[in-house]
Every structure is written in structure tokens, then in C-alpha cells.
Write a protein that binds this DNA or RNA. Structure first.
Lengths: 238, 238
DNA sequence: TAGATTGTTAATCGATTAACAATC
DNA sequence: TAGATTGTTAATCGATTAACAATC
């Protein structure tokens, strides 16, 4: 990784209270756009231009970056590689993370074959499913092929693969039990695709992606749009 | 739908400024949990219990619900069916919404076969892909089978199916062009799975699900956990 | 009535924004 | 130096929380 500035190994954390959640959630976007700029041989970029490509305001971008340290140059902008490196380090992408996927149905298959994982430093190191038809199936995951293991092997797979992140892609009714076993096996970061509220001990980080919820939020806005177009109802109420 | 109270048809919106985004994002969760309670023949529930099942604080739940109107009974709690109905109406789930999916790769297939859509009032009414191998494929979507249409048919499919929501599940480099065509065809609610920042005219609502971003946020927390466990580095800095 | 629980208030917290001094 | 752009400040905005009056 060619970096034209000396890389400091110290990690600057603004006020010691850490980086705000809202900022952390945007860092991956900045990082992806910066990598893409680097591919296009762009070496320097201003907060105005970078912000536009990331879909945020320049003020927000600069505020976000200020939490990581002072990696820009006044009057010039940000060095793409330099900033990209510091974001990736802050995000923990400088080391690879092992991921176990539990539930290899349609969604699980899609996740395994998703190239965005491997390219961003995640390695799928285990696949688990309870269905006999799926267990034993060889699934192509990046460079290596993986064989779907039976659910009984969960603890073994987690510990032997040293996975630190687990993805739950099971039906809703299986999710909590799977979650409990993952936590007991030492996993403390979980990405949950099952439409269930998981309960976990403190210290375990759960993120949730609910496809139906996303559509329902869109439906809400779509409906409000329809309502606004028909002010008749409002007139009738008044 | 059995409701033991008279259903008012007026829509109460607290202060006229609408429901806060953060609240809207949680309404689908409340709704799902309420439906599940109804299935278990639970007729009444307090904010404390409902909040626990939804993974939020009771104060937050009551505040959220207060934006919809006053649908509880002091000293008693909420009637499950009554509250569920009002949330679903607010979310726009009382009418079905047509969804077009563009990009029928692994993820697209997973989305089509996802039962959570149909069960929540969404109907997949069109599938589009640019790849000749996929075009023409018959995909089972709920009750009816759908045939994957070539990308050239996008405008025709959107208008003839009266789809109001589109899902983009294409590779990143195709997403913006697809988005432009969808918007031109009249779609104003888009769920984007491509790792790209889409630019759309004002009035178009875009929601984004980025699987890699979710993992990266988990990686951040995972790394911070490792850092905290090794205070040696901090000692050495001091 | 007494006990329970909602809906609302007011305080706090965190995130966003605009403006500008610092500085390359 | 003059022009450009960052990093920071202070104000604003929105979301969360705890407490409690209203009321079933």
C-alpha cells in the first residue's frame, strides 16, 4: 500500500469518548468511495467533492473525519490513500475477520457468493444448517470451497475456525436458539437477518437487517405521498 | 379482522409535522410483535411488556405510539388487534404494494423467495435482469410464477404492473442507470442493495441496505473490544 | 376507592449544520 | 501574498429518557 506520508501507529480518539455511532456507520461509505477514487488514480480530494460522492454534506464529512484525527491539509484537501488507510485502520479492516454463516437457505447462499465480503477483508470460515438436504453441500466461497456442516457442529466450527462474527440467516423461530449457542461459543458480534428481536447478554453486539422492515418504511412514505396528492381528505376533516 | 372497538377513519397526526423518522423505523417492529402476540391469542398488553418484546424501553414505545394517536387505555394497556390495526394503517400496509425487482442474481433470487414480503402485503409483480442466461427463467414468487424479463422491458413492466416500489439488486456499476430508468418510469420508492450511492431527484425515497457495511460496523466494535482487552498499547503511549 | 398504566412534559443527550478562524 | 480548504466552534435540531399527572 503506497502511502506518501509517514504513518503514525498511534490511534487518536478525539476526546477519549470514542467515535459517535452515527459517524462509525458512515465510515464504511467513505472508505468504499475512497478506494474507488484510488482505483481511478485520484490522489487528492476536497471535502466538498468527497462529500458529494458519498451523499453527505461537506460539514458532516469533515466533522466525521475530525473524530479520527487530523488527516487533511488545509487549502489542499485529503490524500486519498492516506485517509483511506486511516479509516480502514479505525474500522478494523487492516486485519481479516472470520465469519460463520448459520442458515444456508436462499439468503445464506446469496451471502456466501457475495463478493463484497471477501474484497473487504471478511473471510467466510464456516457454514451451518439444520436441514439434511443442505448439510454436506459444497458451496463456493471465494477461493476455497466450504461444506455445509450440521447444526450440531456449531460450537466446534466456531472455535476451530476462530470466527469472531456470525451471521444468522435462519427462519425466525430458530434464531434465538442459534444466537444463544453462538454467544455461548464465544461469538460477540452478530448480524441478524431473521425477523426476530434477539436477546443477548451485555457486551454482545447485534446488528439487524430486516428486509420486510425496509419495504414497510418505503410503503409508509409512498402512502404519505398518496395522501398529500389527495388533500380532499384533509378538506373533509376541516 | 376482529376489532372490539370502533375504528375511526380519521388519521391523527400529533402536531401536524408528521411522525419522526426514528419512530417510523420502529413501527414495523411493533407491528410484527403485535401480530405474533395476536397469533398467540394475547388480547391486551402493557407498554412494559410490549417494549420488552420489541427490544426498546417502555418510555420510547409510549412516546412512539403517542405520535399515532391515543390508542391505549390507562390502567389497562393496549388492545393488541386495535393497536396493530392502527400501526398497519399508518404504515400503509392496509393496501398491497407492487414491487419490481431488478437484478435476479443470488440476492435477487433470495428476495423473490423470501416469504416475509408476501405475508406483509407486498406483491412482487416484476423481475428484470440483463443477463441472457437469467432472462426467461421462471421464478416462483408466492402464489404466481414470474418470468424474468429482459432489461429493455423495464419501462413496460413498471407501468403495466403499476409497481410503486423497486428493489435494485444489480452489481454496483449498473445501479445508477437502472435507478435513472426506474425514476423516469415513475418509481419513487427504491430499496437499493447495490453498494453505490444513488443520486435521485428530490421526492424520490431511497433506502439502502449494504451487507458489507453492516459487517464493517461489527468489525469496528470487534476491534475496539480487542483494543480494550489489551491496555498495554495505552500504557506504552502514556 | 386503590392500583395500574397511559400520554405528556421537561430535561438531557447526541447529531447536524453553518460559519469562520486557522493554515496550507 | 492570495486563494483555498480544513478543523473547530457554537447554535440548532431531533431523539431519548425519566418522571408524573391524568385517568381507567
Amino acid at each position: 500500500m503506497p502511502l506518501s506520508r509517514q504513518l503514525s501507529s498511534s490511534r487518536i480518539r478525539d476526546d477519549g469518548r470514542g467515535i459517535p455511532d452515527a459517524t462509525v456507520a458512515r465510515l464504511p461509505i467513505y472508505h468504499r468511495v475512497l478506494r474507488s477514487l484510488a482505483d481511478d488514480a485520484v490522489h487528492t480530494i476536497s471535502s466538498d467533492h468527497l462529500a458529494q460522492r458519498c451523499g453527505v454534506s461537506p460539514a458532516k464529512l469533515r466533522k466525521d473525519l475530525s473524530h479520527l484525527g487530523s488527516y487533511g491539509t488545509r487549502g489542499v484537501g485529503y490524500e486519498v490513500d492516506f485517509l483511506s488507510y486511516h479509516i480502514s485502520r479505525e474500522l478494523g479492516l487492516s486485519q481479516p475477520w472470520g465469519v460463520v454463516i448459520v442458515g444456508v437457505g436462499n439468503l445464506g447462499h446469496a451471502l456466501v457468493s457475495y463478493k463484497g465480503f471477501a474484497s473487504r477483508g471478511f473471510e467466510i470460515v464456516g457454514l451451518l444448517d439444520s436441514h439434511p438436504d443442505v448439510v454436506g453441500e459444497k458451496v463456493c466461497a471465494g477461493e476455497t470451497d466450504l461444506v455445509v456442516q450440521p447444526m450440531a457442529e456449531l460450537e466446534k466450527v466456531v472455535s476451530s475456525s476462530n470466527a469472531s462474527i456470525a451471521v444468522i440467516a435462519t427462519p425466525a423461530d430458530a434464531a434465538q436458539k442459534v444466537c444463544d449457542r453462538l454467544v455461548a461459543a464465544g461469538v460477540r458480534s452478530i448480524l441478524n437477518f431473521a425477523p426476530t428481536v434477539l436477546s443477548v447478554p451485555v457486551g454482545v453486539e447485534v446488528r439487524k437487517v430486516d428486509l420486510a422492515v425496509e419495504l414497510q418504511i418505503l410503503a409508509f412514505h409512498e402512502q404519505r405521498r398518496v395522501d398529500d396528492l389527495t388533500p380532499l381528505a384533509q378538506v373533509m376533516q376541516a
